[in-house]
Amino acid sequence: LVRYRTISKIPQITLNFVDLKGDPFLASPTSDREIIAPKIKERTHNVTEKVTQVLSLGADVLPEYKLQAPRIHRWTILHYSPFKAVWDWLILLLVIYTAVFTPYSAAFLLKETEEGPPATECGYACQPLAVVDLIVDIMFIVDILINFRTTYVNANEEVVSHPGRIAVHYFKGWFLIDMVAAIPFDLLIFGSGSEELIGLLKTARLLRLVRVARKLDRYSEYGAAVLFLLMCTFALIAHWLACIWYAIGNMEQPHMDSRIGWLHNLGDQIGKPYNSSGLGGPSIKDKYVTALYFTFSSLTSVGFGNVSPNTNSEKIFSICVMLIGSLMYASIFGNVSAIIQRLYSGTARYHTQMLRVREFIRFHQIPNPLRQRLEEYFQHAWSYTNGIDMNAVLKGFPECLQADICLHLNRSLLQHCKPFRGATKGCLRALAMKFKTTHAPPGDTLVHAGDLLTALYFISRGSIEILRGDVVVAILGKNDIFGEPLNLYARPGKSNGDVRALTYCDLHKIHR
C-alpha cells in the first residue's frame, strides 16, 4: 500500500512540481520508500527539464536528425535550378540546329562534286560548318556529364541527390541515346576521305529529338503553341524528305545512260545542264529549293507536275512521300480545326451564355430598361472574369491554397485601402477568403433606401454616388468604403439613402 501511494504521487509531482519531503505519510521509514524516492526525484528532475525545454521552444527539443539540413553532394545540380533551365534551352537550340543542318550536310555532301578544292585539302579548321559541328559534339558530351550530376524525382516524389543513384537512373534511361548522339564521328573518321560515311553517321544526332519531343509535351495545353509546333514538325519532315529526294537524284545521276532524272530535267529547265562528264548542272541553292518544293507539294497532295519522278527509285520514294503525307494530314492537320476551336472556345461560351440571357429575357418578357441593365451587367461581368467562376475553380483546392490565391487576387485593395494598413498577414488572409466580388454598370442602383444592410462594401474600381431623395450626399471612388460596420450592432440596419454607380464599378463586399 505504501508503495502504491508513493507511485500514485508521481503525476502530481510531474505537473505541480511538489516535493515529496513535505508529505508526512511518505516520510515513514520503510525500505521500499527509501529505494523508490531517489528514482522519483530523478524522474521528476528529468520531466521538469523536458517541460522547461518545451515551454522555452528551444531548438534542442527536436531530434538531432530533424535539425540537420538535407545534404547535397558537391557538384550536384538541382533539376529545378536556373542554371539547369538555361542549359536545357541551350541544348534545345543545338538539337534544332542539328535537326536542320545534319540531314542537309549528309545529303548535299554525298558524292558532291561542286567546283573547288576537296575538304581534305583545305583542312578541318577552315570549314565553318565542321567547326560548328565540333562545338555541338562537345556541348552534347558536356550535357552527358551534367546529367550524371543532376537530381531527379523518383516514384515516391522524392528528390534524389545521391550521385550513385543518379548515375544508375541515367544509365537506365537516356544515357545510350545521348551517348550515340554525342559521338564525334568527324574526329574519329577525319582524314579518311569518307565524307559520305561521316554525313550518314552524323544523322545519329537526330535521336535527341525524342527527348525534345517529350520536353515539349508540357506545352500541349496551349493551343497556339501546339499549332506552332505542328507546323514546325511538318516543315521539318518536309526538309528531311527534300534532303533524301536530292540524295536519290544525286546518286543516280552519274550512272544513268539517259538523262531522265529530276536533276537533269531541272538543269535543262533553268539552262544549267550537266555536261557529258557529269559536272556542271544547277547550283546547290536551286537543287535544295526545288527538292523542298517537290516534297511540300507531295505532302499537301497538290502535285503540280513541273517536278516529277521519272526513275524507279524516284517513283518509289514519291509513293512513300504520299503515304507520309496522308498520315500527316490525319495526325496534324486533322487537329488544326480542334485547336482553332479551342482557341476561340471563350468567344463561343460568351455567345452561348448571351443567347441564354436573351432567351430568358424573351421568355419572361423583361421590360426594355431592365433588359438593357441585365445585358450590360452580363457584358461587364464577362469582360472582368472571362466567364470563369472563381468560386467553382477554387473549390477543388485546399483552404490554405485558397487563402493564398484570394490574398493575391485582392492584393491591390488590401495594400491601398486604409482600414487594412497594419493588419497582420493572417488577418488579411482571413479577410480575403470572405470577400465576394460584384460588378455594376453605370446607372445601376446597388442599394435602395430602406434596404437591409448586411454587408460592408469596398470599391475596387469606378465611382458611385450616394443620394437622399434627389440630393447627392457624397461621391465615392476607388478604395472608399460604404455599408454597415460589421458586428457593431446586434441587428442589421437599414439604408438611409440610395447608392448608384456612376461608372463601371468593381466592388468587394463582406457579409455579416
Rank of each mutant, 00 (worst) to 15 (best):
F363H: 11
M139D: 01
I138D: 03
L299C: 01
I189H: 13
M231Q: 07
A69Y: 04
M322C: 06
R421H: 08
A238S: 01
F101K: 07
P118I: 05
G443T: 01
E114I: 09
Q68A: 13
C122F: 01
N391R: 05
W174Y: 05
F378K: 04
T102I: 08
L188Q: 06
S220P: 05
K202S: 03
L370Q: 01
L110F: 08
Y384N: 06
L446Q: 01
M231C: 05
V159R: 03
E114T: 15
P282Q: 01
D257F: 04
E252I: 03
I248F: 01
L236Q: 01
E252P: 01
G261C: 01
L431H: 01
A238Q: 01
M328N: 01
M390Y: 07
T113W: 11
M322E: 01
A381F: 05
S313F: 04
P163R: 01
L109N: 07
R165Q: 12
R259N: 14
T300P: 01
K215N: 04
M251C: 01
K418A: 13
K287F: 08
S326D: 01
D217K: 10
D178R: 01
G334N: 01
Q341R: 04
A167R: 03
N312G: 01
E196V: 13
H351E: 03
I270S: 01
Y170F: 01
W245P: 01
R165W: 09
T424I: 01
C232R: 01
L94I: 08
P254S: 15
A381M: 08
A155Q: 07
T311I: 01
M322L: 03
R421S: 08
R371A: 12
D444I: 08
F294I: 01
F171C: 14
V226K: 10
S276K: 15
I244Y: 01
V136F: 05
L279V: 09
V307D: 01
I91W: 01
S81M: 01
M139A: 11
Y97W: 05
T311H: 01
E375Y: 04
S337Y: 10
E314S: 01
L266I: 01
H239E: 01
I72F: 12
A224G: 12
I260D: 03
W89R: 01
S258H: 13
V336I: 06
Q127Y: 12
H380V: 08
N156F: 09
G164M: 14
L279H: 14
F304E: 01
E359C: 01
E195P: 06
A155P: 13
A430G: 04
H448L: 06
E376Q: 11
H162S: 13
G164H: 12
V210Y: 09
I248H: 01
P128F: 15
M433R: 11
L413W: 04
A213K: 10
A106V: 09
Y350S: 02
E221W: 04
P282C: 01
Q269P: 01
G271C: 01
D268M: 13
E64W: 11
P117I: 14
W382R: 03
S220T: 04
L134A: 06
K84V: 03
S337F: 01
A99V: 01
L374N: 01
F185C: 05
A213P: 06
Q365T: 04
H239R: 01
A403Y: 01
F397H: 01
M322A: 04
K418R: 07
L374H: 01
Q402W: 03
Y288S: 01
A167P: 01
V336T: 03
S258F: 15
L327D: 01
C406M: 08
